[in-house]
Computed example of a mutant assay.
Amino acid sequence: MTHVVSENCIKCKYTDCVDVCPVDCFREGPNMLVIDPDECIDCAVCIPECPANAIFAEEDLPADQIAFIKLNADLAFADGWKSITKRKPALPDADEWNGQPGKVKDLQR
């Protein structure tokens, strides 16, 4: 099992989670973070750190977010999605987008 970043991270990209990750499993894209499933050790320390409540254990992922298991795995290895290990500011309008549904169409790869 691994942890999965879900849709609510899109257009927010808070990075509080990367500071606590003991194995540096987060990858950064233009407007979202993902978790590398090969690196994640299932420690769960990232879950309470996410201001967007966008991180779930794979088995706890809401049914409408199941596609994010594959999406995290695919994007973790995509060109340009680099490891992120230090916290940095969220996207400028993150607070406005936090909690908004239907953001998958806005994902930038």
Rank of each mutant, 00 (worst) to 15 (best):
L75E: 03
D16W: 06
G29I: 01
C46I: 01
Y14K: 04
M32N: 06
C25Y: 00
Q108H: 05
D24W: 07
Q65M: 14
K70S: 10
I47W: 07
A78Y: 10
L71R: 11
I10D: 02
D16L: 02
K70H: 02
F77C: 09
N98V: 12
D106E: 15
S83A: 14
I10T: 07
L75N: 00
F68Y: 10
D79S: 14
A54T: 02
M1P: 11
E28L: 13
R87P: 02
R27L: 04
D74H: 09
G29P: 07
K82Y: 07
E58F: 01
E96K: 15
L61W: 02
N8Y: 03
W81V: 00
C40P: 11
R87M: 12
G102M: 04
G80R: 13
C46S: 08
V18Y: 00
A44R: 13
N8G: 03
G99D: 03
I69V: 15
P89Y: 00
E39T: 15
K103Y: 04
S6K: 01
T85K: 08
C9W: 03
N98K: 14
V23A: 12
P30K: 14
D93N: 11
A54F: 02
L91I: 04
V34T: 13
L33C: 06
D74W: 08
W97Y: 14
T2R: 15
M32H: 15
A63P: 06
E28W: 00
A76L: 04
V23E: 12
Y14D: 05
A78Q: 15
P101D: 09
P37I: 01
D106A: 11
L33I: 04
D106G: 05
R87V: 11
I41P: 04
D106Q: 14
E58R: 08
E39G: 01
I47H: 05
G102R: 00
V23R: 14
W81Y: 15
V45F: 11
G99C: 12
I66W: 09
R27N: 10
N8W: 03
Q100T: 09
C21I: 06
K88T: 13
V45A: 13
A44T: 15
I10M: 07
C50K: 03
R109T: 08
D24E: 10
G29S: 06
A57S: 05
P89I: 01
A44D: 08
W97K: 08
P30T: 09
E7H: 07
D79W: 07
R109K: 11
P37A: 09
D93Y: 05
D16T: 07
D38H: 13
C25K: 06
W97T: 02
L71A: 11
S83M: 12
N98G: 00
A57G: 00
D106C: 08
E7A: 12
C25F: 02
D36I: 03
A73F: 06
P62R: 09
D93G: 01
K103L: 11
F68S: 00
A78V: 08
K11T: 00
N72C: 13
D95H: 08
I55G: 02
K70F: 04
D19P: 01
A63M: 09
M32Y: 10
N31G: 07
A52Q: 03
D79P: 12
D64Y: 08
C46M: 03
V5E: 03
F56I: 06
D19E: 13
E58G: 01
K88N: 03
E49V: 00
M32C: 14
R87I: 11
W97M: 14
A63V: 00
